[in-house]
Amino acid sequence: MARVWAFLTNTRGGARLHWTDWASYAYLTLGIFLMFGPVVWLVMSSFKTEADLQRYPPTFLPYQQETVMVDGYDDPLPLFLMTGGEYEGQVLAQLRRVGLQAQMIDPENPTERLRVTIDQREPVDRIALATENYTDLFERFSFLRYFWNSTFITIMATALMLLVNSMAAFALSKYEFRGRTTVLLLVISTLMIPQTVVLVPLFLIVTELGLFNSLWGVIIPGAATPTGVFLLRQYMLTIPDEILDAARMDKASEWKIYWRIILPLSAPAIAVLAILAIMWRWNDFLWPLIVLTQSENFTLQLALNSFQGELQTDWSSLLAMTVLTLLPIACVFMFLQKYIATGIASTGGK
């Protein structure tokens, strides 16, 4: 035990832990709790039944009340443990509750009806996952529709963005032509025009193009990004021109050079941009909110937002849907954490 402790408190330099080290670990532990806690709580809650969600104070683990099938009754009856009165210690099934009284029966002896007051009993619970919260999503809501819309937008927008931005980056990194500096400045200046400040005219243009209430109205306007062009251009600048010249000697067309040489060689930068694009598009909210007004076109984000208004009390479906919405991004994160970190650090975000 002492050796384990010595190992744990050992720092790389071999010195003992200073009080600042303790403070650091305390801060980081608090960080785990504060950053992961809410998401863990959400996931646990999403497996609770509607009745369990109403429980106050709430429990960490999801519980369900035990039920029992009794001869002569079609539905399963909830079980209660009697904590007082003449049946103390017995487990009874409830038939119905009337005010402060409840009609119970003994499952062993279902003919006799017993009358008890409700403060003399407590429910018999067991830990159980309410997976019906999830299955309900597919039956009661057009969840798959929203999921498909989100997926379609994310994939198409990412592909389009990669193609368009890498073509521009190729031109800006590998060609000497008049006006190159002007184009570079134009691209930079679009940094100053975030979607949020041109919502009204953007809406007109998208409507005029017939893209209002169409998924393409969300996909196309964001396809060209200054961030994407610059990220790829910086990377392509590091590819030696000699490779291109050699290919030209072999009579390769410029297009072939672009997609057979430049694109494969820029794969790391393209991967980073792809991950960022997937993240932005999957989580996009304001522009889809304006363009997609019919519920069959909703993305998951829009559906979640509109349901939280409508289903104020139906938290069980809402929580399950929230979990399913964050799941794809969580998976991407787990596998590609390193790339995401480098990508964000090198582009400075959007």
Partner: peptide, 16 residues
């Protein structure tokens, strides 16, 4: 090569 990007910028950034 630049055209698609510039058209998109023009239509969805500068024109707005």
């Amino acid at each position: 090569f630049l055209a698609p990007n510039l058209v998109l910028f023009g239509l969805f950034a500068f024109l707005p």
